[in-house]
Simulated scan of single mutants.
Amino acid sequence: MTKRLLSSGELAKELGISRRSISRYADEGLISVALVTPGGRYKFDLEIVRGELRKSARERH
């Protein structure tokens, strides 16, 4: 079974943050983009992003 990839808006809603933050985090390399569509839109794996954000938060403290 394949995982469903989320758009930046869907990911933002799941994480309770803004779409702009998602885009900034992706551009800064803080979160991984799972797929870039032919139209240039990012798709994300929720569990991978959650892990990356947890790791980033631990490293800041």
Rank of each mutant, 00 (worst) to 15 (best):
T37K: 10
H61R: 11
L15F: 06
R20F: 11
V33S: 08
L11Q: 11
I22W: 04
A12R: 08
K55P: 01
R58L: 08
E28C: 10
L35E: 15
R41N: 05
G9D: 07
R4H: 11
R54A: 00
S18L: 07
G40M: 07
D27Y: 09
R24I: 15
E59Y: 04
R24P: 10
G40A: 10
R58Q: 06
A34C: 06
L30K: 14
I48A: 07
A26N: 13
A57F: 00
L35F: 13
S21R: 15
R20E: 14
P38M: 08
K43P: 06
L5V: 07
L35D: 14
A12H: 10
S18K: 10
E28H: 12
I17Q: 09
L35V: 14
I31V: 13
A26F: 09
R20A: 12
A12P: 04
S18N: 09
T2H: 15
R4C: 10
G29S: 11
K43W: 09
S23K: 12
E52F: 01
R50P: 02
R4Q: 13
L30G: 10
T2F: 15
G16E: 02
R50V: 05
S7D: 10
G51E: 08
G51I: 00
R41W: 08
L15A: 04
V36Q: 13
L35M: 15
T37M: 07
K3H: 12
F44T: 03
R20W: 09
E52D: 03
R41P: 00
R60D: 10
E52Q: 08
M1A: 13
K43M: 12
G16S: 05
E52H: 01
E10Q: 15
L53A: 01
R60E: 15
L5S: 02
E10S: 12
Y42P: 02
T2R: 15
D27P: 05
K43D: 04
G29Y: 06
I48M: 02
G51L: 04
E47W: 00
G29L: 05
G51P: 01
